[in-house]
Nucleic acid binder design. Sequence first.
DNA 1: TTATTTTTTTAGCTTTGTCTAAATTTATTT
DNA 2: AAATAAATTTAGACAAAGCTAAAAAAATAA
Lengths: 221, 221
Amino acid sequence: MLNYTTSEENYIKAIYRLQSADGMVTTNELAAEIQAKPASITDMMKKLKAKKLLNYQPYQGFRLNAEGFKVALMIVRRHRLWEFFLAEKLKFTWDEVHEVAEELEHVSNKKLIDKLDEYLGFPRKDPHGDPIPDANGKIEISKKICLSELPLNTIAVVASVGDQSSEILELLEHKKIAIGTKLEVKKKFEFDNSIEIKINRHPILTISEQLAKNIFVNYGE
Amino acid sequence: MLNYTTSEENYIKAIYRLQSADGMVTTNELAAEIQAKPASITDMMKKLKAKKLLNYQPYQGFRLNAEGFKVALMIVRRHRLWEFFLAEKLKFTWDEVHEVAEELEHVSNKKLIDKLDEYLGFPRKDPHGDPIPDANGKIEISKKICLSELPLNTIAVVASVGDQSSEILELLEHKKIAIGTKLEVKKKFEFDNSIEIKINRHPILTISEQLAKNIFVNYGE
DNA sequence: TTATTTTTTTAGCTTTGTCTAAATTTATTT
DNA sequence: AAATAAATTTAGACAAAGCTAAAAAAATAA
């Protein structure tokens, strides 16, 4: 496994994020994700193709090959271990953690990451509920869906919030729902698509359809 | 305090290291320190002068001004806190620590460093005995000298080794002297300039002049 | 099927940080 | 004080990673 520049790593990570099981990633999609112009994407795709990290035919989109995928998983591993460290040990709140981890993830010393992993007790998931790949790149599958699609009586972890407005944050704070909160859906009402959820031993909470569609959760082994 | 590139930070750090209380740093000196060509140094000095971090007149050498000094201290702070973390928490050995800290030191999030400092218990010195600047850039003075110059009965900490040959490392290992070892000189012999030192409650050790000249220690408040 | 729109790529420019080779300034000798 | 040597700076080139504007290809509409 060679070393890649911060910029290359950011492209690889973004493609990993965008590429679903089947589809190709397009130039414009990636440009939007990475906040760059399409021309810059084309340049980098040529470079990553030359480094044999992805399949790319002009005008046909691209996707990571096996090697690119492995590299992506190591970047994700670094990111999520640092996130865990920042929250668990340095007591950062979960909304602050991502930004700092974006920087730390590019320090690519393998021994550092493996020792950090050990120090943290080999965590399998970060507190968003996102799985952390192990030193060999093995990763548990877990699905991220919106709360309105969560099956009844399935414990899930709040991973992110769609709308980031202060209004929704106020409401979430009031209901004591934050990133990392474990919850399960106890009832669904067809009339208004509202749901009732349970958090630990707290009283039942009612969530409107609108709110449920803006809360994304992780669940599964 | 603005943000600087990794490259700028490496130059600032190196100038800080080279500039003694009085003197100017020269182009060639810095080129040797940083492993770059003199022409590259000149380029960067123009840039850092434009950013008002140092005094520089062509052909006359340069030195950090008050602002540059402050920036340097923050870089040193980050470096030494990461070193402390790597040794203390991740159980890196002291010879591995420097290289990794060279990378981590450029992650310049202020809150990260202040929280790391707190997490580590606000250490005042790294295990080389080098002082760690606090969040305001305050730093304890401590002198680094070679063991043969250390006054009698003064506790000091082994900070570095001059010669890095396997022969000296073998000898140091045999005598159980490592970076971070606390010791004091108990006797000096004029005949061959050999010295006798004491480490904690261990028996007295004899050190030859040749060896003493290759062991550098930190001492003082 | 042709025309139009959208997407993607190409061509060429910019900045950062490096380099080499040549020119210039300062220091050292004779 | 000239001549020579050493140190430093300038000039010009290059690679990385971004950009804009124009060209080309693909997709969509008429």
